[in-house]
């Protein structure tokens, strides 16, 4: 897992006492990761923003109940995951590829090719079933351990392992064996 910022516990204490600056700092530290994760799950910018918003509101309102012996990011991802699942349930979402995601890049930039490849990977990830998508993002992008993913998703480690192995194979097939 990514290393948590050293000052996170101080920030939490300050945020609990209503310090706006501390809340801003927490938002700046985690909003990118949380938003990216949710966006890759729901594939819609506005929905992702709404869920990210709700995640942080819920997080700050429940901050007093946060167990400081646990990693803060794991707790935050748990909230994000639960709200994303609520969104899926509420909207009976069909998990399909949405074209708006595939944005045009800047053709003149030097790292265009690299960027294009990453977009391709992102596109491929979006084609995975939601549970597989979530697992590969949490394990390979967010670098969470099996135990932490198990806490976030409330699924046994053995199930996560099996599913992740299957997801990796699918990912590899999609990346290296494109449909004709």
């Amino acid at each position: 897992m990514r290393k948590a910022p050293a000052e996170i516990h101080t920030l939490i204490q300050k945020a609990l006492s209503g310090d706006e600056g501390a809340c801003q700092r927490i938002l700046n530290l985690y909003k990118g990761r949380i938003f990216s994760y949710i966006y890759r799950m729901v594939r819609n910018y506005h929905d992702a923003e709404d869920i990210t918003f709700d995640t942080f509101i819920k997080c700050f309102r429940a901050l007093a109940t946060f167990d400081t012996s646990r990693p803060f990011a794991t707790w935050l991802f748990t909230i994000a995951h639960n709200l994303t699942m609520d969104h899926f349930r509420k909207n009976k979402i069909e998990f399909e590829y949405i074209d708006e995601f595939h944005r045009s890049g800047d053709d003149l930039t030097a790292d265009y090719e690299k960027k294009r490849k990453l977009e391709q990977i992102d596109l491929v990830v979006s084609q995975l079933p939601p549970i597989d998508r979530e697992l590969v993002i949490l394990f390979h992008k967010e670098e969470y351990s099996y135990q932490e993913i198990s806490e976030i998703l409330s699924i046994p480690v053995t199930t996560i392992k099996t599913r992740l192995h299957r997801a990796r194979r699918k990912l590899r097939d999609l990346v290296h064996k494109p449909k004709e």
């Binding site: 990453l118 590969v136 390979h140 990796r168």
Partner: peptide, 11 residues
Amino acid sequence: STAALRKLTEF
């Protein structure tokens, strides 16, 4: 295919 996931863009 899995290593590339780490470098994915942050939105």
